[in-house]
């Protein structure tokens, strides 16, 4: 039985992952902005077998709320051994290009709020010399592209921050997992036309749950994105500037 905190718990990917954990009887502390959706998910996870489910309303951009939330989680579950940070937004790239304020707000949500949470968590877990910290980044963070570089650069920050943290915490036995999903069919991507590269949240959830159990690292989800991104990263700048992907 694990004691798990999920931030952005009603994201479709987080929800599917919570179900995997609920089936194993784990204890869950769910954090999101919408109390009603949290209640719906909590009912569902109890039916599916979660040993315990607690909910907590918080906006990830409210930095002052981070530490009290972590205290509440540790108190409610009497400890904490796994954390999944899943919240995020897919900004309107064109709108961001016209607005400094909007661009910074998106980077705040997708990157800085995650950095804030990771910083606090790292210290708590480091002291205890145990635990798993998983964070959902994205393949979009592997290379900035014209179509979504505001989102991509924020995810790049998350990936690199997690990479450094992984190295730092390895010495204390704390695992840091970076999940890099490709295209996933979730509310975030509802307006996209789906094709063969698209995965269901359940598929990503299985990968996340497995990665949390098996020792960390950066995990592409599904695996084939490793190869797609390897090629995209290899394209020289002078070519990259002329193509549209």
């Amino acid at each position: 039985m694990k004691k798990i905190l999920i931030v952005g718990a009603i994201s479709a990917i987080a929800e599917a992952t919570a179900r995997v954990w609920a089936q194993q009887g784990d204890y869950l502390f769910l954090v999101a902005r919408d109390a009603q959706k949290l209640a719906v998910l909590a009912e569902d996870l109890r039916v599916r077998g979660a040993g315990r489910v607690e909910t907590y309303v918080m906006d990830a951009n409210d930095y002052a709320a981070h530490a009290p939330m972590l205290d509440a989680a540790e108190q409610a579950l009497q400890g904490l051994d796994t954390v999944l940070i899943a919240h995020g937004v897919l900004p309107d790239q064109a709108a961001c290009e016209q607005s400094v304020e909007l661009t910074l707000r998106q980077i705040d949500t997708n990157a800085l709020s995650v950095v804030g949470l990771l910083t606090l968590l790292a210290n708590r877990f480091e002291q205890r010399k145990a635990g798993v910290i998983a964070v959902i980044s994205s393949v979009a963070g592997d290379r900035g592209r014209a179509s979504n570089y505001v989102y991509g650069s924020a995810k790049a920050l998350v990936s690199e921050f997690a990479s450094g943290l992984r190295q730092r915490l390895a010495a204390s036995g704390v695992t840091v997992v970076t999940i890099k999903p490709g295209f996933v069919d979730t509310p975030m991507t509802a307006s996209f036309k789906k094709g063969p590269l698209w995965a269901k949240p359940e598929k990503i959830a299985a990968i996340i749950a497995k990665a949390c159990d098996s020792g960390g690292g950066a995990v592409y989800a599904p695996w084939f994105w490793f190869y797609i991104m390897a090629i995209i990263k290899l394209i020289p700048e002078f070519v990259f500037g002329k193509i549209k992907i």
Binding site: L41, V47, R48, P187
Partner: peptide
């Protein structure tokens, strides 16, 4: 399909 929660059992 998005309405996919159990309510009670």
């Amino acid at each position: 399909r998005t309405l996919n929660h159990f309510i009670h059992f």
